[in-house]
Amino acid sequence: MSQKFHRKPRALDHLRFVLGLLVTLIFIFPVAWMIATGFKTGNQAFSNSTSFFFKPSLDNYREVFFKSDFKSGIMTSLQAVSISVVLTVCLASGIAYPMARFPSKGMNRLASWIISLRIVPPIVTIIPLFLLLRTVKLTGSIWSLVLVYTFMNMPLAIWLLRGFFKEVPREIEEAAEIDGLDGKRIFLKIVLPLSAPGVVATALLSFVFAWNDFLFANILSGATTRTATVGLTEFVTPVGTAWTTIMAAGTIVVIPVWVAALFAQKYLVRGLTMGSVK
């Protein structure tokens, strides 16, 4: 990407810039509208004139944090998702490393099977999973969410990590082996540090997908384990939808992901494009 600056007709550059700006605007307008609405009062949001300019109010955020159970939802999400991310990365590395390093017919078959799990739509899995978790009495516990999120993210994580581990130059590992390091140490001391960006990318993507989940959480959550996304629906009631509050709560749901993505944009992009582009 470094030396791609070439002089081009200026008019075309301007057109590209305008188009790019326009596209960006289209993609951010709805989210900007959400954030803005979160700072409005009901009257400002529903009045007949479109209110782009208004006096911001923190009432909705007060409502979300002090009057509703939403913050317990955030906590549940944070717990379930972070435990599952750790579990995902550990378990997936265990599979991905041998898969990347010591390929065999059996390994490839395993890889195909794991990738095929990614194709199964969650709605298909949720009923049997619900029946299973019900049998082992885990519904309503945070562990049901941890297990399901780990299961959900494993195929993608294995796929990504396998690619990242493959990028570690073979020679370094061989040198370590000659130095007498065993397989476990090679992985922990050499391969893992060298593929750290990939691991971060994988963890980040697993985090995003689990955090954004609604279907599983909606069906599996119990009294004390309602996640943030499920908590959001609490503001839609049969007797009134607190739109401004929902927009504030929605903003709170998406901010962690946006912030994480912003700081780790490079990793995120790598993770998302991994496997498709090399």
Binding site: V23, T24, F27, I28, P30, V31, W33, M34, T37, V208, W211, N212, D213, F214, T229, L232, T233, V236, W243, I246, M247, G250, V253, V254, V257, W258, A261, L262, Q265, L268
Partner: peptide, 21 residues
């Protein structure tokens, strides 16, 4: 970076936002 925001937003939030808009 800004263009990526929609895909990072939880689909349930996108749904609510769509209903509102």
């Amino acid at each position: 970076a800004l263009i990526l925001l929609p895909m990072l937003t939880a689909p349930i939030v996108v749904g609510m936002l769509a209903r509102f808009m």
